[in-house]
Design a protein around this nucleic acid. Sequence first.
DNA 1: TAAAATATTTAGACATCTCTAATTTTAAAA
DNA 2: TTTTAAAATTAGAGATGTCTAAATATTTTA
Lengths: 238, 238
Amino acid sequence: MSKYFTRINLIVTFVRSKFMVMFSLSEENYLKAIFHLQTHPKAGVSTNALAEEMQTKASSVTDMVKKLSDKNLVIYKKYQGVYLSESGRETALQIIRKHRLWEVFLVEKLDFTWDEVHEVAEELEHIKSEKLISELDKFLDYPKRDPHGDPIPDAQGDFQVANKTLLSDLSKGEKGTLVGVKDTSPEFLKYLDKNDIALGKTIEVVDKEEFDGSMLIQIEDQSLRVSTMVTANIFIKI
Amino acid sequence: MSKYFTRINLIVTFVRSKFMVMFSLSEENYLKAIFHLQTHPKAGVSTNALAEEMQTKASSVTDMVKKLSDKNLVIYKKYQGVYLSESGRETALQIIRKHRLWEVFLVEKLDFTWDEVHEVAEELEHIKSEKLISELDKFLDYPKRDPHGDPIPDAQGDFQVANKTLLSDLSKGEKGTLVGVKDTSPEFLKYLDKNDIALGKTIEVVDKEEFDGSMLIQIEDQSLRVSTMVTANIFIKI
DNA sequence: TAAAATATTTAGACATCTCTAATTTTAAAA
DNA sequence: TTTTAAAATTAGAGATGTCTAAATATTTTA
């Protein structure tokens, strides 16, 4: 009798871990923030950096990080910073997948511009429905990138890491295609729109000023001088 | 100088009241529940009825109703039940508008069935973006009804109240078109699907049993016997 | 390496929304 | 119309997620 009971328990545990895991809005946002800040896979994210990203206080971060650690979503040792665990990383990637799919929907179907989508997608990414996301993915014809050029993880959390370079790292004479932006703030995106700089366009470094790093670039038919504030936020595929 | 200051203040106040009013998830759900329970415009909704609808306790309802009253969303006198104020009604209608538009989206664009949409729409209805809803409305080509036949309020909160009758109120020989369902539970909707009963179909009362109210109905090519559990949840337009 | 500066954590408190266990008010029954 | 039953409210407390202020660790600098 107790043998059967144990087997049923194991199945229930499996089902819950695969489909019923629910996290609060705040927990999901923390996981996403840790993912974005964790550039080097083994470098912990500091409490202050997380507080800055989450627009909150360090003490609040400590509390939440403990909670996430209790749920095995992060690895945390006092004063040592925090890392995503494997399950934390999977969860973060699913939230990012939802965020980016909704961004594609907003731009392609609802006529949003690429500087308007982030705020709304921040809310839509927390809607809980496996079917909603798989059907949305199908409806959008399985897009590989969001409107800013960022890759969209698939249902398994896998995504292509593009070999891309910052425009600011290119030398005079080099050229490539604009494949992404690092800064996705409305201010920067509107600047790009105003100057007709868009994903997919060809950019060549005509001249580079040693003093301040500013560049004269040829973007399709247009010649333009841009500062490092701009070139350090544009990704190029050579 | 102070005259200008006053004018600016007035404008800001107007803008906030028109576009920036934010309510919590819980507040929005209470307003919606009160709207649905308030069948007679001047009959107050009782605390217990609200508690039942909200799946919570009467004491929690009393607390929340006081809060809504402080915000002038409801009219509330102790022990006398609660009504929606004009602004509470407007807010409730906007949430219902969003809910029903999302249901149309889910069925028409993402291949959801009419028994699957409610749960997801309950989450989507709380996303805050004027543009999102107006663009979604446009994308769906300004639908007038949701997948269950319920009317969708427009941006001003206006909607058509159809002259519809319960099938159970029809007499032998009367016929009409199926224009809506009262019970939108997955169980009932799946029963309808299984028996090929759908919106838009013509139904005629071939025979009505006096004893239990059950009916023999002709629905297009099909002849079917149905209980009052069914007939009391189907709306007909004669 | 000791003092100073910075980063992080702890302690205690607050707001929101919920609950249980009384208490009070209203409605129904005798 | 008094008693009883039902409905609604208040009081006090718990969970979550936040904050400020104080205490403790770590890192930097002299």
